[in-house]
Write a protein that binds this DNA or RNA. Structure first.
Length: 497
RNA sequence: GCACCGGUGGCGAAGUGGCUAACGCGCUGGUCUGCAAAACCAGUAUUCGCGGGUUCAAUUCCCGCCCGGUGCUCCA
């Protein structure tokens, strides 16, 4: 497949360099709060990448870090009067639950910063041996950017003017150059720290990713992913540290996911357009719709997240689910002759074309918009043929196969939405946040499947005695609670909106 | 300020130097239905931010302007 590489600024072939597994590192969360939809856009796009690679038969060795120590964590944990481990555990757990709700595959390896301190310390030592890392009088360690001439090659920034001591206010307690960044931070009094032969302290954020990436993937590996904001300084610093230490290329391919806007504005708490995944679930939006929206706009494009768009994707997902159910459950006519002729083979042809286009679009720099268009083309064509009585039992495998391949990447067809809404409501109740749930969501909570089935049965009886007023009243009542009914020849189907 | 990315129908968006400018949602009309829903059919941008230029031909390439976003600081 071909994928844009930030380092070379070109779309390039992506394949495992060892001919076996694609080794990739993706920057994970800092677990000091619940994840917001912007975070999840990045994780979802990385998920699309890894799912597509796997669909094509490429094995993936995917490492994701969890930053479970940093300034915010130390501060928040102290405020809460908790050890940092107790503070972060809850948010790390919540993060993985959110990934599950969004059907994001877990990486092969999850690397926690606090579990890999020795690797970081030893990497700093390697840099210190070359005088690239230096210690300041307060006991912190810094990286000497002047010693890495290629600094800026990823973000395309020119730092050629940077030399040792170039900054104006160098003083003996401070770093040698303003741009030099921290590798190891000395603790302030009472702060959580590790005692190591570098002195007491905690790792800088950048060294964490360098050390863990190389620990689990080797000095040189295939792909490094993250949000666009991480390009500078985080990823630039990772390159500087790693390549200075090993004198080998760090990651060959860099994958950066662009930010999303919310209602045309940057998402921020002050704008009032800041949403965690859980906020949206409490408002009754489905994880599948959120996933569909966040992956449907290609990763290099800014995506404008709107509630109107979210509602649209809810319908789009529903359409695909209805289609699959129709194909699977309808008793289709057997074909009259041996072998396929005419329209029968046209349907198989349409399914094959859809699969081809789907693969081609994703292989072309993960064009998810085109990929899904190919599937919708097939859905419309097949529905039309089926309405005209021109769909046969023999066509099922090809069409279902196309849907299956689509769903190995998009992962929206299996309906887990209601269980995650319920899960989120239970969480909100424990956290005292139930007031953030909309009345509709709360209403569905106390309506069990059995109660719904019973009401549907009442309605059926009313219809038989042609009491349409009563039947419609039941249907409307259920609709208000988010339950939609569909009458068909094969009986009544219902679903939660 | 410097650098980078984008501006396509009511909304989200794909795409291309020249074929009817994808796809999803919405809206209008129709088929079906007790009525709906689902599904299908038809319609829904003479036009791709604005102004110039290159070209036989530009939404697509170049220049300028306007608007939005991002980076230069913690941030997915």
């Amino acid at each position: 497949m071909r994928l844009y590489n930030t380092l070379t600024a070109r779309v390039e072939e992506l394949a495992p360099s060892d001919g076996r597994a694609l080794r990739m590192y993706a920057c994970g969360p800092t677990v000091y709060d619940y994840g917001h939809i912007g975070n999840f856009r990045t994780f979802l796009q990385v998920d699309v990448l890894r799912r597509f690679l796997r669909l094509r038969g490429t094995e993936v060795r995917h490492v994701m870090n969890v930053t479970d120590v940093d300034d915010k964590i130390i501060r928040n944990a102290a405020q809460a009067g908790l050890p940092i481990g107790d503070y972060t555990r809850k948010f790390e757990e919540a993060f993985f639950q959110d990934l599950d709700a969004l059907q994001v595959e877990h990486p092969e390896i999850v690397a926690r910063a606090t579990a890999n301190i020795p690797a970081m310390v030893s990497l700093i030592h390697r840099l210190a041996e070359q005088d690239i890392a230096y210690r300041t009088d307060d006991g912190s360690w810094y990286f000497r950017i002047a010693r890495f001439p290629e600094y800026g090659k990823l973000s395309k920034k020119d730092f050629t003017g940077i030399t040792d001591g170039a900054r104006v206010d160098v003083d003996e307690y401070e770093k040698d150059s303003a741009r030099d960044f921290a590798l190891w931070k000395a603790p302030r009094p009472g702060e959580h720290h590790w005692v190591t032969d570098l002195g007491p302290g905690r790792p800088g954020w950048h060294i964490e990713c360098s050390a863990m990436a190389m620990e689990f993937l080797g000095d040189s590996f295939d792909l490094h992913a993250g949000g666009e904001d991480l390009m500078f300084p985080h990823h630039e610093n990772e390159i500087a540290q790693s390549e200075s230490a090993t004198h080998r290329p760090f990651a060959r391919h860099w994958f950066h996911v662009r930010f999303l806007l919310v209602e045309n504005r940057k998402m921020s708490k002050s704008e009032g357009n800041f949403f965690t995944l859980r906020d949206l679930l409490l408002r009754g939006y489905k994880p599948s719709a959120i996933r569909m929206l966040l992956i449907s706009v290609p990763y290099r494009q800014q995506l404008n997240f709107t509630f109107e768009g979210l509602a649209a994707e809810t319908v789009a997902v529903e359409r695909l689910r209805t289609f699959r159910e129709r194909i699977e459950t309808t008793k289709w006519p057997q074909s009259s002759s041996h072998g396929m002729i005419g329209i029968e083979s046209e349907i198989d042809e349409a399914a094959r074309t859809a699969v081809e286009k789907f693969h081609a679009a994703l292989a072309n720099d993960l064009n998810t918009a085109e990929a899904r268009a190919a599937i919708f083309d097939m859905v419309r064509f097949v529905n039309a043929q089926a309405d005209a009585g021109k769909f046969f039992e023999a066509n099922k495998p090809a069409v279902l196969d196309a849907l299956c391949q689509f769903d190995r990447v998009f992962a929206v067809l299996d309906d887990h939405d209601a269980e995650w809404t319920r899960f989120t409501l239970d969480w909100a109740e424990r956290e005292g946040r139930l007031d953030q749930a909309t009345p509709e969501v709360l209403a569905t909570r106390d309506l069990s499947d059995e109660q719904i089935e019973a009401l549907i049965d009442d309605r059926k009886k009313a219809k038989l005695r042609r009491d349409f007023a009563r039947a419609d009243a039941i249907r409307n009542d259920l609709a208000v609670k988010g339950i939609l009914l569909e009458d068909s020849k094969d009986g009544v189907r219902w679903k939660r909106r």
